[in-house]
C-alpha cells in the first residue's frame, strides 16, 4: 500500500513538474501584464515601477528560478487582479467546482446505472432503444452547443430558469443538466454493455439455479459486477470534472476553478494560473487514489493480488 502510494506520488510530481514548467513559460508568452493593469495614460516610470515590483523586467529564466524558490517555501504567489495570495483565490473557488461536480456525478451515475441496467435486461425492446439512442446522443453532443441552446430555450425564450450565476435550485438546473449529459451518456453505454455480459454469465445462471429472485439476480449478482466497469469510467469522468468544467462554468458564470483559470489567463494573472494548476493537480492525485481504493474495495480479485 505504501509502495503503491509512493509510486503514484512520484509519478504525479514528475508530471506536475513538467506541466508547471510548460504553463509558466507559455503564460509569459501571452505578454506583459503591465499594460492590462495600468491605465493607458500611465507614465513610463509607473510602468517600469510595476514591472520591477512584480519581477516582469527580469529574464523569464530568472523569474522561473524565483518562482521555484517561492513554491518550495510554500508560497504560490500573489494575484495581480485580486490583490490577495493566489492560494486563497483558488481555494475559494474550489468548493464551488467540487459542489457542481459532486451533484452532477451523483445524478449522472445513479441515472446511468438505472437506465443502463434496465436497457440491458431486455435488449432490443423499446426502453433499450430509447435509452441507447438517447445516451449516444448525450455522449456525443458538444457541451458548448448544448449549454448555449439550453440558455436560449429555457432562459431566454421560456424564461423558466436564470441564464447564469449562482443561487438556489433554479441556478443549478441548467449547469448540472448540461454537465451531466456526457457522463450520463457514456455511463449508460458502459453499464448496459457490462450488464449484458453479466446477465449472460455463468454465475447469473448459478444464481437462478439456486432460486434467487430475478430482482436480486439483476440488482445484486449482475449489477455488482457491472459496477466494476462503471467505476473505471466514472473515475475518469470524475477526474475530468474536478479540474473545473471550463466551458460550463464560463457559459453559466459559475465561479468555480475552471472559470477562474480562464479569467486568470485573460488577465495574465500568472500566479493564479500556476496556483490553480498545482492545486488541481493535487486534487486529481487524491481523486485517483480514491478511485483506486474504491476499485480495490469493489473487486476482491485485485485486493488479493
Amino acid at each position: 500500500m505504501l509502495a503503491y502510494l509512493t509510486r503514484r506520488a512520484v509519478h504525479s510530481v514528475i508530471a506536475l513538474t513538467g506541466l508547471v514548467i510548460a504553463v509558466f513559460f507559455l503564460a509569459r508568452l501571452t505578454g506583459d501584464p503591465t499594460n492590462l493593469y495600468l491605465p493607458p495614460e500611465a507614465s513610463r516610470e509607473a510602468r517600469e515601477e510595476f514591472s520591477r515590483k512584480h519581477g516582469f523586467d527580469r529574464p523569464a529564466t530568472e523569474q522561473f528560478a524565483r518562482f521555484v524558490g517561492d513554491v518550495l517555501d510554500g508560497n504560490l504567489g500573489f494575484s495581480l487582479k485580486k490583490q490577495r495570495p493566489a492560494v486563497e483565490v483558488v481555494l475559494e473557488a474550489y468548493p464551488t467546482t467540487l459542489k457542481l461536480a459532486a451533484v452532477t456525478l451523483l445524478i449522472a451515475i445513479s441515472l446511468a446505472i438505472a437506465v443502463g441496467a434496465l436497457a440491458a435486461y431486455r435488449p432490443g425492446r423499446v426502453f433499450d432503444r430509447v435509452g441507447s439512442t438517447g445516451s449516444l446522443i448525450g455522449a456525443s453532443a458538444p457541451d458548448f452547443w448544448v449549454a448555449i441552446t439550453a440558455i436560449l430555450l429555457f432562459a431566454e425564450s421560456l424564461r423558466w430558469l436564470p441564464t447564469s450565476g449562482t443561487g438556489g435550485f433554479p441556478y443549478w438546473v441548467l449547469p448540472v443538466t448540461v454537465l451531466a449529459l456526457r457522463p450520463f451518456g457514456l455511463l449508460v453505454q458502459v453499464v448496459r454493455g457490462a450488464m449484458m455480459d453479466a446477465l449472460a454469465s455463468a454465475y447469473v445462471k448459478t444464481a437462478r439455479a439456486k432460486g434467487v429472485a430475478e430482482r436480486s439476480v439483476i440488482f445484486v449478482h449482475a449489477l455488482r459486477n457491472a459496477l466494476l466497469a462503471a467505476v473505471t469510467v466514472a473515475g475518469d469522468i470524475a477526474v475530468g470534472m474536478i479540474n473545473g468544467a471550463v466551458i460550463v462554468e464560463t457559459v453559466f458564470g459559475w465561479p468555480g476553478v475552471g472559470k477562474l483559470m480562464i479569467d486568470a489567463v485573460e488577465q495574465r494573472d500568472f500566479a493564479v494560473i500556476q496556483a490553480s494548476i498545482m492545486i488541481t493537480a493535487a486534487a486529481i492525485f487524491l481523486m485517483n487514489i480514491l478511485i483506486d481504493l474504491l476499485y480495490v474495495a469493489l473487486d476482491p480479485r485485485i485486493r488479493h493480488q
Binding site: 437462478r208 439456486k210 429472485a213 455488482r224 466494476l228
Partner: peptide, 28 residues
C-alpha cells in the same frame, strides 16, 4: 410461471455446473 418455478430451483432441484470458477460470482 417463471417466478413460481424459480422457487423450486435450489429447493427441489440443485444444479452443479462444469466451470466452477465462472459459475461462482467473483465478488461475493
Amino acid at each position: 410461471p417463471m417466478a413460481q418455478w424459480r422457487k423450486r430451483c435450489g429447493r427441489d432441484i440443485g444444479m452443479v455446473f462444469q466451470d466452477a470458477l465462472a459459475s461462482l460470482n467473483p465478488v461475493f
